[in-house]
């Protein structure tokens, strides 16, 4: 414990910088994936295509080991944080896509009929009925993606992205410093949990209060 304490008190600034890098790399990847996967998921759900090509590609991407994905991306895109952001982006596609699809297809069709009867346009229905009702499932997908992304970013240290993986590697190179390895690991776990809680808040904010309407 004393080693850990000493390490923290001496290097807190460095640890903060690495945490910030780690956080940003994970977040950017997932956000980019949201930009692609949510619209794509909506589209697929409207077309009722559960086994589309894009879903299949996202599925296969998921089976590639992180270290291999990073190595291949490194060869094409070079070193640094951008490569890790691309990896996070690719890994985040499936969970977000799958949940968006599931969330939207789960919306009660009766509700859509009612909305249409009220004279809503297609776009209105999407933004006022479908998305609010499926948002919690979609955010569930984003949560899964972020936990994975935080983990991938640790491995990203091998392609020079920085982040908490640097601290773990430092701990590995030090003498009798399992604590420092833990410091990096706990930092990453803490970040994943924190982001999970944060997204929980976002979810609450975006979910309509009277969600149970659908049971009429």
């Amino acid at each position: 414990m004393t080693v850990l304490f000493q390490y923290f008190s001496e290097n807190w600034r460095y640890i903060l910088i690495q945490s910030r890098t780690h956080f940003l790399i994970s977040l950017y990847g997932v956000l980019l994936a949201c930009l692609v996967a949510i619209p794509l998921g909506i589209l697929l759900a409207y077309k009722k295509k559960s086994n589309s090509l894009s879903m299949m590609i996202a599925n296969i991407l998921q089976t590639i080991p992180s270290i291999a994905m990073l190595s291949v991306l490194m060869i094409f895109f070079g070193l640094g944080s951008n490569t890790v952001i691309i990896a996070n982006f690719l890994y985040s596609l499936l969970p977000i896509l799958k949940n968006t699809y599931a969330g939207i297809t789960n919306v009660d069709p009766k509700l859509l009929d009612v909305a249409e009867g009220l004279g809503m346009t297609r776009i209105q229905r999407l933004f006022k009925v479908v998305l609010p009702l499926s948002i919690s499932i979609i955010i569930g997908g984003i949560k899964n993606a972020i936990v994975v992304a935080v983990g991938i970013t640790t491995v990203g240290t091998f392609v020079g992205s920085g982040g908490l993986g640097d601290i773990i590697t430092r701990g590995i190179n030090m003498v009798d410093a399992g604590e420092v390895v833990w410091a990096g690991a706990i930092g990453a776990a803490f970040m994943a949990v924190l982001l999970d809680i944060l997204l929980g808040f976002v979810e609450k904010k975006l979910t309509p209060k009277q969600k149970r309407v659908s049971s009429f």
Binding site: V147, V150, G151, T154, V155, L164, G165, I168, G171, I172, G178, V181, W182, G184, A185, I186, A188, A189, A192, V193
Partner: peptide, 17 residues
Amino acid sequence: SVLQTFPSLAVLAIMVP
């Protein structure tokens, strides 16, 4: 689920000793 978020790299390194 918290266990799951521990980076595998760190877990493997800790296992060595």
